[in-house]
């Protein structure tokens, strides 16, 4: 969503690119190859992995955007704890629970991975745009580079891990 932070520059952008699959439209799945994909968020369950693999399959260049995609972010706080302990702490032994709890186990729920993985540990990532979120300027800088066929590099003031 930090793409929107590029503000009015988005008007410039729409003249130059076609948006295919994105949260801005209602298209949920790829039906063709695209040039560039941006992924945000790490992989915490099997669905995330599937979706990320779909992105990799359909994007010529895949970019990992933001701290969660790069190191798992806040969800990765569970990574040092272990999945079982984490689920039990939340659903069985939590201090706010009344009565016996249960770990949600609906068959439609995707299974959680043993930890939250950054995107580059699941698929090949071509470039990274760090930040939490990356600033509009950083996004714009990255986009400009890609549009001119260059590797995105960020100047000091735009490269932030936070």
């Amino acid at each position: 969503m930090s793409l929107l932070d590029i503000d009015e520059r988005i008007l410039e952008l729409v003249d130059l690119v076609d948006l295919d699959v994105s949260p801005f439209d209602d298209k949920k799945a790829f039906d063709r190859q695209v040039d560039v994909g941006f992924v945000e968020g790490g992989c915490s369950n099997e669905y995330n992995v599937k979706e990320l693999r779909e992105f990799r399959k359909h994007c010529r260049i895949l970019i990992s955007v933001g701290a969660c995609a790069i190191n798992g972010g806040v969800p990765a706080m569970r990574n040092t704890i272990g999945l079982r302990e984490c689920l039990e702490a939340v659903y069985l032994n939590g201090p706010s629970l009344e009565g016996a709890g249960m770990i949600p186990n609906d068959e439609d729920l995707p299974l959680l991975l043993d930890r939250v993985y950054p995107s580059h540990e699941i698929v090949k990532i071509d470039y990274f745009l760090p930040g939490c979120p990356p600033s509009g300027d950083a996004m714009w800088e990255g986009l400009k580079a890609l549009l001119t066929g260059k590797a995105p590099t960020l100047p000091y003031l735009l490269c932030k891990y936070e």
Partner: peptide
Amino acid sequence: GYRLGMVAPTQPYQW
């Protein structure tokens, strides 16, 4: 990390 041009660590996180 910034000064030396690290965009993201790519070695496996040890957690």
